[in-house]
Design a protein around this nucleic acid. Sequence first.
DNA 1: GTCTATAGATTGATAGAC
DNA 2: GTCTATCAATCTATAGAC
Lengths: 174, 174
Amino acid sequence: MTLFARHGYAAVSMRQIEGEVGVQAGALYNYTTDKQSLLFDLFKRHMVDLRTALDAQPPSASPQDRLEAFARFHIRFHLERPQAVFISYMELRNLTPENFRVIEELRRRYEGVLEAILETGRDAGAFHVADTRVTALAIIAMLTGINTCYRSGVRLSLAEVEAIYWDMVRKAVT
Amino acid sequence: MTLFARHGYAAVSMRQIEGEVGVQAGALYNYTTDKQSLLFDLFKRHMVDLRTALDAQPPSASPQDRLEAFARFHIRFHLERPQAVFISYMELRNLTPENFRVIEELRRRYEGVLEAILETGRDAGAFHVADTRVTALAIIAMLTGINTCYRSGVRLSLAEVEAIYWDMVRKAVT
DNA sequence: GTCTATAGATTGATAGAC
DNA sequence: GTCTATCAATCTATAGAC
């Protein structure tokens, strides 16, 4: 994961991986069928963990509370896993077509959760959104971009950044 | 550009590029010193074009108008160049360290324009932003994510999507 | 289950004829 | 300025000894 995040899937050789995990050339194939499945397994685990952790959140009653819970959850989950997040956004095109479809479906289901929250809130008159799908994608793009904050040297605490981002999301849909 | 955007810099061979532009192996080196400079030139041109186009925008008086002009400009510029944008976000780590520094500096200067708009607006009491740097990064992340809208099959017109995104930005900083 | 050795293909880049 | 030929290195993956 570290090597893929740092240099990119295509630029990392099996020999580099072997050196990193402490076996010599060839022995790695006792643990994986090929290089592609190393990438796919990282993707799959990340997406499954994401959904599992989301479903484990305590339920909220109002659309506002559900949106806040989703936003704060998304921010924290992504800030805790910068490498896995990076790979999951950058290496999609290095998945084989069938593996890509699997991951894309998992991603759409996750986005669908936010979309459903926005729909419920809009129908209840709590949110003002022109298009729930577009708005959901915009919110997720903004929240996921939070990882670039720390890469670009912002010196705020996690709680402070979380508060800023949630505040922007709240206002953007009101 | 098409090949790098589709498969990624590291996964594209010089022979693929040669085939695409219609010369045979070897002749390409009459036009470029090496593969790295092909990538760097794409980056540099994109960043220079971005800044040139921004500076060519008609000036606006109020912070609100300046923010709207910036947001709409950013959206349109990025929607018109999905491939160059994709490369400029995905292939940063495939630049050599010295090339990376050049591009990173250009990027920071562009982000600085939005930051300055937010500062002016905040000092004038027009915007409510807790941290101009974090807010600028969040806005740019959201706006740049607009390209995923069309990849994910949203069937709205450019003007409609632009209106939705600008509306979210406007509310988020108010 | 790890090692060495290697197959077979491909890589970026260069040389030299034309 | 394009071509063919090729170098030297590297790639993923496998074979077989231990």
